[in-house]
């Protein structure tokens, strides 16, 4: 399916500022940073999580552990997916029990990925709390899930798609709104 780019919402400079602001919010809210662990949701959530981890280190000189989560096995919308999801490893090398988890994803849409991720975390242990960080909130929630830290609220239509591109994967930092091209 071909897509066309409708708008370029953010560039590298803006993205950097957003991450800095969010990091400050996280530090402000979590006085016990040594209780905090970060869990990034594959794929782009992991890279955002790494950036936040680095920013916390720079600002507070605290090493916050980072884990990687693949929530595919916990999804409820399996039978609606046309595309098969290849499962990647979940790599959380620490005990999450009694920790404050900062769950990180790039875009929140229906909320179903986050629901799956939380179920997945509860099978790994009993965290003290879970906070949610999303870079882009594009609306259209189907579940009562809201983020604690939001990079940008970006109202979209359901037809549209939000693409977060990151240097680590795509060689560029930017946020785009795309739309499928109608085939006449």
């Amino acid at each position: 399916m071909d897509v066309k780019i409708k708008a370029r919402i953010m560039d590298a400079k803006k993205i950097k500022r957003v991450f800095q602001r969010i990091t400050t919010e996280i530090i402000e809210r979590n006085r016990n940073l040594n209780q905090l662990v970060i869990v990034g949701i594959r794929t782009r959530g992991v890279h955002i999580a790494r950036r936040i981890q680095k920013l916390i280190k720079n600002l507070e000189d605290e090493d916050v552990p980072l884990g990687i989560l693949d929530a595919t096995l916990y999804r409820d919308d399996f039978s609606d997916l046309n595309k098969q999801h290849i499962i990647k490893k979940t790599e959380i090398g620490f005990d999450i029990s009694d920790k404050d988890i900062l769950l990180v994803d790039d875009v929140i849409f229906t909320g179903r990925t986050i629901r799956a991720a939380m179920d997945s975390l509860f099978d790994l242990g009993r965290p003290r709390s879970i906070q949610l960080l999303v870079f882009i909130d594009r609306g259209h929630r189907e579940l009562p899930i809201q983020a604690d830290y939001t990079g940008k609220f970006l109202p979209t239509s359901r037809r549209e798609n939000v693409k977060v591109r990151l240097k680590e994967l795509d060689n560029i930092d930017e946020v785009l709104i795309t739309e499928p091209i109608e085939i006449q």
Partner: peptide
């Protein structure tokens, strides 16, 4: 990717 499931405490996923 499935390997980790068998070694953890809750050895089950709902897929």
């Amino acid at each position: 990717s499935m390997e980790g499931i068998s070694t953890r405490d809750v050895k089950k996923v709902p897929v």
